[in-house]
Amino acid sequence: MRRRVALAATAVLLVGAGILVGRMLATAPVNVRAYALGRLYAVQAHLDEAPAAYVFLAGDSHAELQAPAQRPCGLELVNGGVSGATAPVYADLVATLRFPVRPRAAVLTIGTNDILSKNDPRDPAAAARYEAAATRIIRQLTATTDRLVVTALPPIGRELDGRLDPLAVGDYSERLKALCTRLGCRFADPFAAIRDGTTGFAKPGAMRDGLHLSAYRPALAALAPALCSAGTP
């Protein structure tokens, strides 16, 4: 009887969360909304069973594609990445998550889906919307963990020039760096080795499809100094 009541209560909570997030994601594309809702349930289930010390990965597909078997700082990963998420979408999602156990550290990578050329990402209004959403995410995560590392945006493949704005890669990265200075997170660039200078493009062979990295493990390994070292941000 108690088990049936507990299951019923869980179902009510999940339905309620789905309605809430569904309303918040009303302006997102249908496919992004549907996937984000599904990921919300999976991420929450993993957070509910998280160990006493773990690292939380937050953001878009660059977070979600990190292999779960990795152990940054010797700790288990809980992957909260949502492929296709923009900063406003992810800000709404992360606000609904519960963290029964505080992560030892968290990593945020967000912005690639915000720099579509058709959205004119370097227009002051668009850039301000991104910065406001990134601020919301950072505030939510810094309230959840004592160590938040925010990464620069990854570069893009040259074949995506025209679909994504390569100059926005550096622009949005600098905005994130300034936010960390103001809000108390650490900023790091784990993608420095694959950048083709300051063009916003990646070196040949560094990207799988122009959008996603050929290898994600080196990027997470490159975060070790910021993620695992002692001291304050």
Rank of each mutant, 00 (worst) to 15 (best):
E49T: 15
N119M: 14
G81Y: 03
V82N: 07
K177V: 09
D123S: 14
A168D: 01
Y41N: 07
G59L: 03
A126S: 02
R195M: 03
D209P: 01
P218L: 15
A91W: 04
D196A: 15
T145H: 12
N113V: 08
Y35K: 10
A34H: 10
N31T: 13
G80E: 11
R4D: 14
G22W: 06
G38F: 12
T86S: 14
Y172R: 04
T27L: 13
C228T: 04
R122A: 07
E76R: 14
T109V: 11
D120V: 05
I138V: 15
P154Y: 04
A192V: 05
P218A: 14
R163E: 12
G200Q: 01
V15E: 08
P204W: 13
D123L: 06
V94D: 02
V5D: 10
A34E: 10
A26M: 12
L13K: 14
A128V: 02
A105G: 12
R33S: 06
E64F: 06
L14M: 08
L223W: 01
G197L: 06
G84T: 05
R208L: 15
L13P: 01
V43R: 00
A168V: 03
R163Q: 14
Q66T: 15
R71Y: 09
A188Y: 01
L37R: 03
L65R: 10
A106F: 10
D146T: 15
G81W: 01
V89D: 08
G18P: 05
L25S: 07
A133K: 03
Y41I: 14
F201C: 01
A152C: 07
N31Q: 13
A53Q: 13
D60P: 02
R71D: 11
G200H: 00
T112S: 04
P233G: 15
A222Y: 01
L148P: 00
V12I: 11
D161F: 02
A28P: 06
R4G: 04
A11D: 09
L108F: 09
L57P: 06
L97Q: 04
A34L: 14
D114H: 04
A106N: 07
A215Y: 05
L25G: 00
P225K: 08
F99D: 01
D209M: 12
L211Y: 10
T144S: 11
E76K: 13
L14I: 11
G18Q: 05
R33W: 12
L97M: 06
G81F: 08
A226W: 04
A132R: 11
R102I: 14
R139A: 12
A87R: 02
R129I: 05
D161N: 11
T10R: 12
G59M: 01
A222F: 05
C180S: 07
Y130V: 00
P155T: 08
A87W: 05
G22Y: 00
H46I: 09
D120G: 06
A134K: 03
A67Q: 14
T10S: 08
P233K: 13
R158D: 13
L75C: 11
L148E: 03
A133P: 00
K203E: 15
